[in-house]
């Protein structure tokens, strides 16, 4: 038995139903949007995913280790998140991750490339393996995420956002940083190139430059921290304080601060593209010119 059309209409446009719709809580700034975040199982990437999800977005988390992804994914309420194991230097991995976004939520609106690693060595000690790894994850990963993401955004035809997490080190010639700094600079310039190319599709591309995020960041575990400590003639334990004192505001920079930067360019600064925002407590050497 199917409903008579008039009866169906009477239910659909019932005044009491309309009143119920009017009572629904207002939608959040990022509701109806789908974000994919690389490196999202922990640290800055997870903080970004949390921020976007808090403001209503659906999030697709990608990272290398499935167990950490499962744990991260389980921190959200049902119908908010999904995940894909993804090595960002692999074209097929990235295609699979986007497939998850398309099947789970229908497509993608926001691409955040946050996957990263840091290697700090002087030129004489820097190996080809180091160089290739940095280029693969930071530069090639960003390029592939942008290429595959833009293809989906163009299919939808409703614009989109890309946010690349680079670093102060792409702007400042820090000590013993040839591989990492070069890769970060490449990420920053790719942002500008893509912003120019994708603007006609209403796709905005921006960079966030974190600096000195120690607490909660995977990058600071192990060798990198040691390298940074050594390069600055201090101990690893002294690093957070050292980094806070180093910036103009003397602030310790947390993963949530970087997430706020992403939120700002995605949800608030909706007429900004090709830009970069430093989230570093203020570093005169890194002021963009």
């Amino acid at each position: 038995m199917a409903l008579d059309h008039q009866e169906a209409f009477n239910i659909e446009y019932w005044l009491l139903e309309e009143a119920k719709l009017k009572r629904m809580p207002a939608e959040k700034p990022l509701s109806r949007r789908i974000a994919i975040i690389t490196g999202a199982a922990g640290g800055i990437g997870k903080a970004i995913a949390d921020k976007l999800a808090d403001h209503g977005a659906n999030v697709v988390l990608t990272d290398m280790a499935e167990d950490r992804l499962i744990e991260a994914n389980s921190s959200y309420k049902p119908d908010v998140s999904s995940y894909a194991v993804c090595n960002v230097s692999s074209e097929t991995d990235i295609e699979e991750a986007y497939k998850v976004a398309c099947l789970e939520f229908g497509g993608v609106d926001i691409v955040v490339h946050c996957a990263g690693l840091a290697i700090s060595k002087p030129l004489s000690e820097h190996s080809m393996t180091d160089w290739n790894l940095l280029q693969d994850v930071l530069v090639k990963g960003q390029y592939l995420m942008a290429q595959k993401g833009a293809a989906i955004m163009r299919k939808q035809g409703i614009g989109g956002d890309m946010v690349n997490i680079a670093s102060k080190n792409g702007l400042v010639a820090g000590p013993n940083n040839v591989g990492y700094g070069s890769a970060k600079a490449a990420q920053q310039h790719m942002t500008r190139l893509l912003a120019a190319e994708l603007a006609s599709d209403q796709i905005r591309v921006n960079t966030i430059n974190p600096d000195g995020v120690i607490i909660g960041s995977k990058i600071w575990e192990g060798k990198w921290a040691e390298g940074r400590a050594k390069a600055n003639n201090i101990t690893v334990e002294e690093l957070p304080e050292f980094y806070a004192k180093r910036n103009l505001l003397h602030k310790i920079i947390l993963p949530e601060d970087i997430a706020n930067g992403v939120f700002a360019v995605v949800a608030i600064l909706d007429k900004t593209t090709g830009n970069m925002i430093n989230v570093d407590g203020g570093m005169a050497t890194a002021f963009p010119r």
């Binding site: 109806r32 497939k99 099947l103 789970e104 229908g106 497509g107 299919k155 939808q156």
Partner: peptide, 26 residues
């Protein structure tokens, strides 16, 4: 099926989002 659905979903999402942006389920 998944291959076809993943290819088509963004196109459908664009078309159904003509008035309001939509989230999909398959």
């Amino acid at each position: 099926r998944k291959e076809q659905a993943a290819l088509l979903a963004p196109v459908l999402r664009g078309l159904t989002s003509e008035e309001n942006r939509m989230i999909g389920h398959f």
